[in-house]
Write a protein that binds this DNA or RNA. Structure first.
Lengths: 218, 218, 218, 218
DNA sequence: AATGAATGAGAATTCATTCAT
DNA sequence: TATGAATGAATTCTCATTCAT
């Protein structure tokens, strides 16, 4: 009887692939090594994936799914803006460490060598968050939680930009070094400070600026 | 005596390398292809650079030098915080288009597979900006241009994060797509909007938050 | 499962390698040519041997093993000194023809460019013979088969020197020519003459010199 | 006016070549490196020598000339057999150290990779010595300095074999190691011992063997 | 279906040789 | 003539992919 690869086995293979690609990049990753580490033959890998490219994309997809599922939990809550932001920041700090390979995979597609993925994946990945962020910023405007002279889409964009950079800063080597240079060597052992400072930054950004306030108070 | 490769020719070779590496990454870039495109033999290339790695780093260095020289012009002005920020945003929008390959090179080293460059380059690249940003935020605090309960280093970090993402959004394919998803297809033909909205975001972030204002107005 | 390269095939590859390296030297030997001649792809060759150097050493090792196994048969007999010597000379004449490539490989490592092999291989190859030769010369001294005022180690050395040169003279092109110049064009079709003359040379060397004899007869 | 390379300069270039080839072998030696070390351009080297092969042969020829001139001094004396032998042994010990590169070059042509040189060089190099050795052994027979039942040519051959091996043992890495294994680590700081023992070996070989003596004295 | 040995195109690198100056 | 920068064929080695078992 022919035994198909179980979903678990398939998942395991992808995980091995993710680890390999996250470390070595899409070019450096070695199919034969991956197969060996996953305890399968290259033959079976090629049964499931046409070529390296396809397999890499499967690894990528899995990474993005994991990231999305993590995100979804937080995103779908119904808290106020800053509470939500705080939850998201904490989530980023938390999973960026444990799931750093997934984040690295994400980082890989953003880099120049992957134009081919650009539009396909951008749509797939960013549509959800952009929509959700934009919506809750719109709601915040209606609720007067936030200044009303802004573009919700742009603010969602800047907000996500900050979160993305935070995510990279906790996962990817270069960004880690950069974070230490900016914030000090101990940044990674002082999560509360990061949360507090970023919240201050956002809190200000989301509320009326002083000049506006002054103006309005006139 | 045969003339050595002129500085111009050398520069041209590096530019070809930058284009190749920006597109294909440090591994994917092909030395033989680069030599052919540059109209030289592989031999010369290896006369000037010990190996692919060394050549890649030369391309990288050139890219970073270009970026830094652009940055330096803006950075060294002595304007007020928001004026400076505006100048920098405009600069980013401007050069990220024309110099997109340099930005891509920067993006390349930040991506996962290049751990080896991480600490070396992070220090080299980020030290300057982090110091300057931090200093002018400190000054802004003394001048009461900005709320005083924040960490200058962290605010510098968040500020640069936003600029970096903007830079990538105007240079790298994935980030371009992402920007369009967030801000609309016409974002790249509407620079003023981007400047305005990001300034609003920053302006808020840099000034007292509403709650503080309320508190102070008491 | 595909069959692994059989031992026979593996041996064949080494033989092709030996032929190539014996002719062209460790540097001149071409891996691609060897693979083609052996009817395999370069890939397999590199599956079994890390690199050219490693493969060369495997060829070398095989050569030395063959030479040693031939030697061992003769060496382990328990005959008197000159009987042994005669057996060894005959063995050298015999196998140096059929196994000339193995001898050439030996010659290759002794030549200048291979300092790296010098100490490693010298120890590996020469230790056995030097010990055995020295021992049977010591025994011959005790048995009064040989003059007793000599250093067994040195005599073993000179004895082996003569055997080595004989070996090269029957295997390596230059030494072949040289032998013809010294001993005449027909040397290679007159083995008995060679055996006889070398035995005379040794026989004298191993027994008391005339002066000693005269001295003793007093 | 065009200045030709002086003989001195030409000699210097060859010496550099000899050093390079002795160390790296005929394949490993690098023409560009040689030119640089010799302080000339590759162009001029190619003006004098058609190609690497030709240049290598010129280096070889020079080496052999040096060796021959050294040899000639000793060889042309008119001493008795053993006195001559002793002089030659001492000469070998002496010049093998100082002139080790020339000896290495000689060793190189004897190794398998150089079939092309075999007959040409063998004739050129060995003819002289073989003739001289044979002649003085013939004379020794006439003078009753040496047993009369031997072949002068073969004894000359064995004699030169021993000298060659001595020469290699003092010049070439592999043979050096081998000599240490046979004769002890201190062999190279104890020339007198070597001379004495080799002379004993030869002295015996050249005189009547014990059995003959016994037979004759009856 | 599964295996994994074998394949061989492709990439980095070297260096003998050429030839414009 | 002399130079030495430039050339590019040749070589080592890798690894995605195939396919006989």
């Amino acid at each position: 009887m022919l035994k198909k690869l179980t979903d678990d086995k398939l998942a395991e293979i992808l995980e091995v692939g993710i680890t390999e690609f996250a470390e070595k990049g899409p070019d450096g990753g070695n199919i034969n090594v991956i197969a060996k580490k996953a305890g399968i033959s290259v033959g079976v890998l090629y049964k499931y994936y046409d070529n390296k490219e396809t397999f890499f994309q499967a690894c990528l997809k899995r990474s993005l799914n994991v990231l999305e599922s993590v995100l979804r939990d937080i995103i779908e809550c119904d808290d106020k803006l800053l509470t939500r932001a705080e939850k998201m920041i904490r989530a980023v700090l938390y999973y960026s460490r444990g799931y750093s390979n997934y984040v690295k995979m994400y980082n890989v597609i953003t880099s120049g060598s992957s134009q081919k993925y650009a539009s396909v994946y951008a749509k797939e990945i960013e549509s959800l968050t952009s929509k959700i962020y934009t919506e809750f910023i719109e709601r915040a405007i209606r609720d007067k939680d936030i200044r009303d002279d802004i573009s919700p889409k742009f603010f969602a964009f800047f907000f996500d930009n900050l979160l993305m950079m935070l995510q990279f800063s906790y996962s990817c080597d270069y960004y880690k070094e950069r974070a230490k240079i900016y914030c000090g060597e101990d940044i990674f052992s002082n999560d509360e400070k990061v949360v507090t400072e970023l919240l201050k930054f956002l809190e200000s950004a989301f509320t009326f600026s002083q000049s506006e306030v002054v103006h309005k108070s006139n």
